[in-house]
């Protein structure tokens, strides 16, 4: 059998893509070209098929890993069914309500220079995000419902006790420590940008790093300090389970820009948010819909009708809006 160089190059390119070695740009270009070349597309599809079949047949993870993953499965089904979605739980609960018009309060604490230890607390009311700029140039954003107590010691140390979700943009300063405390856990910042969410009720910590480095600690013990920019860490305090995965800054910080972010969120939870946000009552005509999962990013200034239409278009949900004489409004999902 004879093979010319060109076709082998093609297989090499295919492998490059399938093995995940291509850059984002290469991938994007490659799939764009497939969209316009059905011949190439079916070649690649066949190639991928063989690749996947082969992996299915001959690859397996190591025995310990399988055992561990089975144990997770077994404990999940025997505790609560709702626990099994571990990847984004913090984010989906983090999506709290922001005001239609975002009230951003810029507090400047210039006076901090003249005192040795100064503490202030900041809380972001439901429906608002707040931001603060500290004397050293650090910028902090707090998502709706977040509370924090900030203490500045002699310009060389700043601590933030956090409950809720916040975004940090901290300039590097080797003479100043910046520590965020969540109960006995803490994040040491070394000049970075990151998003941190502490869900005290569910005992979950989610740390997404965008620039620089951070160290995640429990008391004095270093739990994790290898997080790279573009990665996020999920930490479950109850079972000390940690997951590291790739994250997307635009996505995670969407709340900062006044957007609803839903990631695999059941309709019942989305309904709760819409109820609070638009001051309506939502009823389910069809109970099965409650568990339908939705993902998406929607501007909070969008009208309720528009959001409902989006939900309708992307699923088999139907809705009816019922305006009452007393001005209240009912939405029925069916």
């Amino acid at each position: 059998m004879c093979l010319d160089i060109k076709t082998i190059t093609l297989e090499k390119d295919f492998l490059h893509i399938l093995k995940g070695k291509a850059t984002k740009k290469e991938r994007s270009q490659f799939f764009e070209s497939l969209a316009h070349n059905s011949n190439l597309k079916s070649e690649f599809m066949a190639f991928q098929k063989i690749w996947v079949l082969n992996n299915m047949k001959y690859r397996s993870r190591d025995k310990k890993k399988i055992k561990k993953s089975f144990n997770r499965f077994w404990s999940d089904i025997n505790t609560s069914y709702s626990l099994y979605r571990r990847i984004w739980p913090t984010l989906s609960t983090a999506v709290a309500l922001l005001a239609i018009c975002l009230i951003v309060s810029n507090l400047l604490f210039k006076d901090l220079f003249f005192t040795s230890v100064e503490t202030f607390t900041i809380s972001s009311p439901k429906g608002n995000i707040s931001s603060v700029e500290l004397s050293d140039g650090s910028k902090l954003w707090f998502n709706s419902g977040a509370k924090a107590s900030v203490t500045v010691y002699n310009h060389d140390k700043i601590t933030v006790e956090l409950n809720g979700e916040a975004f940090f943009d901290i300039p590097h300063d080797k003479n100043r420590e910046f520590i965020i405390e969540m109960g006995e856990y803490s994040v040491y910042d070394l000049g970075t940008q990151f998003n941190l969410k502490y869900d005290k009720d569910n005992q979950l910590i989610n740390l997404s790093l965008f620039e620089g480095e951070v160290a995640f600690k429990k008391g004095e013990n270093n739990l994790y300090s290898d997080l790279l920019p573009g990665e996020a860490l999920n930490y479950n305090i109850k079972n000390a389970h940690k997951t590291v995965y790739q994250c997307d800054k635009d996505y995670i910080t969407a709340w900062k820009h006044g957007k609803f972010v839903f990631i695999d969120q059941p309709l019942i939870e989305i309904a709760k948010e819409l109820e609070e946000w638009y001051d309506v009552t939502i009823e389910f005509g069809n109970g099965e819909l409650k568990d339908d999962l939705f993902s998406g990013v929607i501007k909070r200034r969008t009208s309720m009708e528009h959001i409902l239409k989006v939900l309708q278009l992307t699923s088999n949900l139907n809705y009816a809006i019922d305006y009452q004489k007393d001005g209240s409004c009912y939405v029925i999902f069916e």
Binding site: M1, L3, T7, L10, E11, K12, L15, F47
Partner: peptide, 12 residues
Amino acid sequence: ISKALKLLRVEL
């Protein structure tokens, strides 16, 4: 390896 995959693809 590339050749193998190519041949398989043609064969299949």
